[in-house]
């Protein structure tokens, strides 16, 4: 295991956490857009209540990924920045509009018209950002960014497989968010998010099937990772177990278990992506080794990561402990407690 492998692992771990936290955050925005029925307003309020204190921290994971990429694998950062210029700019627009609109809505007048307008900007950009993020991942994995960056078509990413991954990402994040929100909601509202989680779970399945089929001719490494590599079968079995557990728990109204299973499913999917394109960082041009910074830098960054982690994880635990109840990550539901909603 080289320093480059360790840093590749750190980037993948940061991406997993970004998917689990930032992804759910995008998913919350998607449910804001899709709020319907008699409890439309309550659904939106729950989303806002759930993400307000934590959304800024949730999105620092993306910054960490970017910083690690340009520090440890500068060639990959340059290649991705050049070939994926257009989707990256779209992603930035999504991120800026989403964060700004969410905050502006909180501090603007409570007047309905104003709130609806900001809500629309927030929720529309919550759909845009994960779709584009998925497209970027799909484009990197598919090997479409081949050749010298200068010669690459700036619209090479606009193809069926990356787009399918984009929709897959949005569905996955919506699914994840619905399972989280079902834990935080009560009564009828909880039922709303339970049904949404089941629906989104079905959408995840369809989008995954579509992306899988498209990968057959569009992303050979991913396709091989899905079927032929040594880790393929155990990974599939584990992901399937997580998915089935999530569905079963949702049907049986075991909300915390469903949330944990959904999170495990997302984790396995991201890890599976990483494993299938290993040792490539940008398929097929750059591997972890060929994109690497000098070893002195990589070692120094690993130390910095270790030191940062000692501080970061307790702080994150405190954040979730304060806002998500006494047992923020527990998989067991307690007997229903009296009270309107929320974890206290």
């Amino acid at each position: 295991m080289t320093a480059a492998d360790l840093l590749g692992g750190a980037i993948l771990a940061a991406l997993v956490l970004y998917a689990l936290l930032g992804g759910a955050d995008f998913g919350g925005g998607i449910w804001d857009l899709l709020a319907t029925g008699p409890r439309k307003r309550a659904q939106r309020e729950l989303v806002e209540h759930a993400i307000s204190p934590i959304w800024e921290a949730n999105h620092v994971w993306l910054i960490l990924v970017i910083v690690l990429l340009f520090t440890a694998f500068p060639k990959a950062f340059a290649a991705i920045s050049i070939t994926l210029f257009v989707p990256l700019v779209l992603l930035l627009f999504g991120i800026v509009l989403r964060g700004a609109a969410f905050t502006f809505r909180t501090y603007d007048t409570p007047e309905d018209r104003v709130q609806v307008r900001w809500g629309l900007v927030f929720s529309a950009s919550s759909v845009l950002a994960p779709v584009v993020l998925g497209v970027i991942v799909g484009a990197i994995a598919s090997g479409r960014l081949a050749g010298p960056p200068e010669g690459v078509d700036p619209l090479a990413w606009l193809a069926p497989f990356p787009l399918a991954v984009g929709f897959f990402a949005a569905a996955l994040f919506a699914f994840l968010a619905a399972t989280y929100l079902a834990v935080e909601a009560r009564d009828a509202l909880r039922e709303d998010f339970r049904r949404r989680a089941i629906g989104a779970g079905a959408a995840v399945f369809l989008a995954a099937a579509l992306a899988g089929v498209l990968s057959w001719y569009d992303a050979p490494l991913v396709f091989a990772g899905l079927l032929r590599r040594g880790f393929s079968l155990p990974l599939h079995v584990a992901t399937a177990v997580a998915a089935v557990t999530a569905f079963a728990a949702l049907f049986r109204r075991r909300y915390r278990l469903a949330r944990a299973a959904a999170a495990a499913q997302v984790t396995l999917i991201v890890l599976g992506w990483g494993a299938s394109q290993y040792p490539y960082l940008v398929v097929p041009g750059l591997t972890l080794a060929t994109a690497s910074a000098p070893r002195a830098t990589q070692v120094a960054v690993l130390w910095a990561l270790a030191a940062g982690a000692i501080f970061l994880f307790p702080a994150l635990y405190l954040l979730f402990r304060v806002f998500k109840g006494e047992r923020p990550f527990s998989v067991l539901d307690r007997r229903p407690a009296p009270g309107p909603r929320g974890e206290g």
């Binding site: 921290a57 690690l68 520090t71 440890a72």
Partner: peptide, 24 residues
């Protein structure tokens, strides 16, 4: 990137601290 990545990496953790504790 490899030369000035260190301060940027550390800045990432400082930014985490800001975001987490500002939420609190």
């Amino acid at each position: 990137g490899p030369i000035i990545g260190m301060p940027f990496s550390l800045e990432g953790f400082a930014f985490f601290a800001e975001a987490i504790f500002l939420g609190i």
